[in-house]
């Protein structure tokens, strides 16, 4: 599941995978406790409880003595300034490649479909343009952050 949040440092795309009760983000793991808190296991081996509350569009999070306030950006809301989306947001497998090099695509068109933890994730074109490179074929494994495709964007 993909979510976009506005942080102090800018917009961040968070794409979660799930295995039974365990949520996965890269090497981090999380479970939802019965009291509504979240147990977070970080990739560095430490863990802690996060307390969350949603006020309006903002998620307030207390974690390890820090308090954060992330505004959730609704999917479909302006995703300008982020010409990325062409990198793998999570480790997984390429399920489908829907375009060819040289093909012209429209903004929002699906370029590639990934699968991770039995969940599909669509890679969309941020703007109109033409595909210049395709780095993976269907069935190949990708790492988080792998560049999947490249395109020339038209303004």
């Amino acid at each position: 599941m993909e979510h976009m949040f506005r942080t102090r440092g800018g917009s961040v795309d968070v794409t979660l995978a799930r295995s039974d009760d365990v949520w996965i983000l890269g090497e981090h793991r999380a479970t939802v406790e019965s009291d509504g808190r979240l147990k977070i296991h970080l990739s560095n081996g430490t863990s802690g409880f996060a307390t969350v509350a949603k006020v309006g569009d903002c998620w307030w999070v207390h974690f390890k003595g820090h308090t954060f306030n992330f505004e959730r950006i609704e999917p479909g809301a302006s995703q300008s300034g982020d010409e990325g989306g062409l990198t793998a947001p999570m480790p997984g497998k390429v399920l489908q490649v829907l375009v060819e090099v040289g093909q012209t695509v429209n903004a929002g068109e699906t370029l590639m479909v990934l699968e991770a933890m039995k969940m599909e994730h669509r890679i969309l074109a941020a703007s109109q343009g033409s595909i210049t490179e395709i780095h993976f074929a269907a069935g190949e494994q990708v790492q988080q952050g792998s560049v999947l495709l490249a395109m020339d964007e038209e303004d």
């Binding site: 979510h3 949520w23 979240l38 977070i40 998620w59 974690f63 390890k64």
Partner: peptide, 27 residues
């Protein structure tokens, strides 16, 4: 805050949103 801690917090927000935790009122 360290990147790790902020990542953990972002993950918490994302998991909370995905699990519909916001439908439980804290206030």
């Amino acid at each position: 805050a360290s990147i790790e801690v902020e990542d953990g917090a972002l993950m918490a927000a994302a998991v909370a949103e995905s699990s519909g935790l916001h439908r439980q009122s804290h206030s």
